[in-house]
Design a binder for these strands. Structure first.
Lengths: 210, 210
DNA sequence: TTGTTTAATTTAAACGTTTGTTTAATTTTT
DNA sequence: AAAAATTAAACAAACGTTTAAATTAAACAA
């Protein structure tokens, strides 16, 4: 799919508004006003509001084949490669947090039918790369053998999004340093925590009796 | 706040519909139809749709003071207590996953003003209990000293919710055993994974050079 | 370059529905 | 007889979508 500048601008505005106020909480009039266009342009360009959502999701997730391969082809050791992967993952989900939020709330419901095959395909490919890396690490004796591999990425992404979705109460509970921006916190403290958790998980050997 | 049977029934219906179709995606007519009542009853009982949301959240989160104390006062060792806490946490969030989803979307937006002080207070109390437990474990030499304590619960909850919010693509990617119910999977495989991750994180000592 | 024609874009206005809320009358309970 | 609960009907406002006219851009022949 090719989109012109105006369509991409509508995508940017729509992504922000859908993420903040949900699909049904955002009227096409509000989108048009924010984007500086006439409401009829949305039907003209995308056909309907629902098709706008579908094309938005496919456009925004089209480049989700992250550079995992290059991160894994370095000469670093296994634990350093884990760090590299997590740095990449957190950077991507933080950059794309809004479209992820839309997916979590509008697509995860089975009740919306969206053509989203390309997203699922990319997800499978990314998982295969990570799975192979971990299995190699297990064969090399670095990683523990009884790890639930499919649940590792959910732990990485979940930690980030649970922080993001609870930012409001998180700030109230822990009084974050107001001089540290969200971006800084995510790419330092939060990323370090996730790196630590995953490296620990991958190298953990159950104490006897468990 | 005291609510009669009819109000509680409306809460149950509303919770499910708000979680599935969002606040703005659920009309009070749809709620009334599903609950078998007249639409005017919602204004009569709750004042407005927005006040229904507020009272729903407060009602559904009123009992979030989980039995952490009892789980920590047992004679189990520290690692077994971690297991106990996680079992409790996962049970609670799974049981209350719908209201959590509403909170994640409708409240995490700063733009909705809901009186939710009691929820924040409970959260702080629960965190204090967990913080004290971990610090005791650190003093006892069981837990590592350089753990980010405020981010531990986000990792527990986040793993669960990332699975829940991506269930649709998760199933497509990993072909879950269709004979294992969601409840079973959560309380066995998923809970075990989280237990392992947190115990590993709490006992992990960074290799030299990191 | 010109003027002319065709296509693409943009607009304001209107369409029928659905929205949350309120009213006033009715029924049920106390 | 008084209070509480329930109902159908109506309200204006907002919704997604479509229409037909107006404007702009592109293509083309001279």
């Amino acid at each position: 799919m090719e989109f012109n500048e105006k369509q991409i601008h509508i995508f940017e505005v729509t992504e922000r508004m859908f993420a903040e106020n949900s699909y049904d909480g955002t009227s096409i009039r509000a989108i048009a006003k924010e984007a500086g266009i006439n409401i009829a342009m949305i039907s003209y360009y995308f056909g309907s509001k629902e098709k706008l959502l579908e094309q938005l999701l496919n456009y925004k997730t089209a480049n989700f084949t992250i550079e995992l391969e290059s991160a894994l082809s370095s000469s670093d050791d296994y634990l350093k490669k884990v760090d590299n992967i997590i740095t990449l993952l957190v950077r991507r989900i933080h950059k794309n947090r809004r479209v992820y939020k839309i997916i979590h709330f509008e697509y995860s419901n089975g009740n919306r039918q969206i053509d989203f095959e390309s997203y699922l395909k990319t997800k499978k490919e990314n998982y295969s790369i990570i799975e192979r890396f971990i299995k190699n690490g297990q064969l090399a004796g670095v990683f523990s053998k009884d790890v639930n591999i499919p649940l590792i990425v959910p732990t990485v992404l979940g930690t980030y999004f649970n922080f993001y979705y609870n930012k409001r109460s998180y700030e109230a509970t822990y009084q974050l340093d107001p001089n540290v921006s969200l971006d800084d916190f995510v790419h330092t403290t939060l990323t370090d925590h996730i790196k630590r958790a995953i490296k620990a998980l991958l190298t953990y050997e159950m104490p006897i009796g468990n």
